[in-house]
């Protein structure tokens, strides 16, 4: 048997020699067998509002038991969690928290959801998969916040147990993904289409970075692609950039840029367009039919909810999402 291993989890597809660790830092070839280095060893565990993920159309005002291990499949220069995403698992402080204990802790803390988040959950695929299977048996929902850089086969297998996904669509050019993230755009678009096909509730986050991906024409083109391939009901969150990691030379995103992005998205036909990382009326949900205020938010707090049985209280229109 060959001792070389080809990892087929993400599009990078690392070819690993004996005792070589993958680019994600989370998988190792030992004697021709690939092992996870992070199974049951989260470096981050927290209880968050589901709105923080951000999910705005998925069980609003509930809490999510959130876990992450070290490692990532990309190397974004603007990463807000680079201390753990760009770290080796042996360099982070890890807990011993097996899958059944994750579910038990979530239930003890009245969390409706377990969210795989903070770093890139693809790198702890086996841990997430086993946890999600147990959670499904106990009627705890599973959600993922991902960069979408995962191959189709593992994604379809995971989708059997995933209730919702928030995918970072970081830009709409191959150049950005190549230069800024060390990846490719095409696999991320494929992931979005696959998740939609598999019936996983989908929301999209786009971090708007001054000078790098804030061109209104490209944003509109991206939104038109979303409408055509995923539908007009997919909520999109334009998130405000703040200088982090290797991009501290850039300023925070101007408010006007975010408002322009929102206008471009609505012009393209998207019905639910939000602005994140910034307080404004654009963090509220309005009915696409009668334009009445449905969910009022201040940051992560829901202050008003006018959705009943998945419908607008005012006009009765069905509101896309998972409401209870």
């Amino acid at each position: 048997m060959s001792k070389k291993v080809l990892c087929e989890l993400c599009p990078t597809e690392c070819l690993l020699e004996d005792y070589q660790v993958g680019g994600c830092r989370a998988r190792i070839n030992k004697g021709g067998v690939l092992y996870s280095l992070v199974y049951g060893k989260p470096c981050s565990v927290a209880i968050d509002p589901i709105e923080k993920k951000p999910f705005y159309h998925f069980l609003p005002a509930t809490t999510a038991f959130s876990i992450a291990t070290a490692g990532c499949v990309l190397g974004c220069k603007f990463c807000q969690n680079w201390q753990i995403s760009q770290a080796k698992p042996e360099d982070t402080d890890n807990l011993d928290l097996p899958p059944d204990e994750v579910v038990r802790q979530a239930m003890l803390n009245n969390c409706k959801t377990i969210t795989y988040t903070y770093t890139e959950p693809t790198v702890f695929y086996e841990y997430m998969y086993d946890t999600a299977k147990i959670a499904r048996n106990f009627n705890v929902k599973n959600t993922i916040h991902t960069c979408g850089y995962i191959n189709e086969k593992p994604l379809r297998e995971l989708s059997k147990y995933m209730d919702a996904a928030d995918v970072d669509l970081k830009a709409f050019t191959e150049d950005f993904y190549n230069r800024i993230c060390g990846g490719r755009l095409k696999p991320v678009l494929d992931t979005l289409v696959t998740l939609r096909q598999e019936g996983v509730w989908l929301e999209i986050t786009n971090l708007v970075i001054p000078t790098l991906n804030d061109d209104a024409k490209t944003i509109k083109k991206m939104c038109m692609w979303i409408v055509k391939n995923l539908g007009a009901d997919v909520p999109i969150h334009f998130s405000r950039f703040f200088p982090y990691y290797k991009l501290t030379n850039l300023p925070p995103t101007p408010v006007e840029t975010l408002r322009d992005a929102r206008s471009a998205a609505m012009d393209a036909g998207l019905r639910y367009v939000y602005i994140g990382n910034m307080r404004s009326e654009a963090e509220n949900t309005y009915c696409h039919h009668c334009k009445q205020l449905l969910i009022a938010r201040i940051g992560y707090a829901v202050t008003q909810n006018n959705i009943s049985g998945g419908r607008c209280k005012f006009c009765g229109a069905a509101i896309p999402g998972v409401w209870g």
């Binding site: 087929e8 998988r27 690939l34 086996e126």
Partner: peptide, 14 residues
């Protein structure tokens, strides 16, 4: 105990 990973294969490719 180390956890065996999913989605990989042995290869002789260079």
């Amino acid at each position: 105990e180390p956890k065996k990973a999913m989605f990989w294969r042995n290869t002789d490719e260079a």
